[in-house]
Amino acid sequence: MAFDFDVIARSLPYLWKGFRYTVELTAIAATGGIFFGTLLALARLSSVKPLALAAAGYVNLMRSIPLVLVIFWFFFLVPVLVQGITGAERPPQIGAERTAIITFIMFEAAYFCEIMRAGIQSIPKGQVYASYALGLTYGQTMRLVVLPQAFRNMIPVLLTQTVILFQDTSLVYVISATDFLGAASKVGQRDGRLVEMYTFVAVVYFVISVTLSHFVRRLQKRIAVIR
């Protein structure tokens, strides 16, 4: 049987759309995940016990169930939740793409929480004492002293997690969202060229992931020197 890699060139605009969605989903999920993950980490480390327990419960729940399950679960759950909040007559049509964004932010927040928690705990207690002794409040201490350092120390780990996230976003395929893999899959099924399409997708994921991982390793060395 003959391969027809020309199918890739022909469907490039459609694939590009899917790829853009993958990158967008990765970027938004990483940003949102780090933001909420940091809040979760602060909650987990809080001296207010109920807050710490609630955050720990959420994180452990998310980390204990498979991502595919969460994607399915939220796909059906989110519309119902939105209906409950807004009081609409029937569940609103949110769409697979937007559900995926919400799901990934919530799921990744749990993983980024653990990274940020480790980052915060890696900052010596003396930094906090020094900040308090200089007259700063808890909020200022976190914002100006602890989080910038925790974030800087954890950048390599955060990026590594983001590379994993970049690959995991392909799972939105299960709710028929058209990401890069979804687009390639649709083209491949339409034209009967699945092997060519999947090969192409694999090469793209490989090149991007390897490049990013290499960049992360170099960054890690630089940060280690400064620290």
Binding site: A130, V145, Q149
Partner: peptide, 10 residues
Amino acid sequence: MVFQDYALFP
């Protein structure tokens, strides 16, 4: 306060 390990903000 001056700390034993200085606790400068790196």
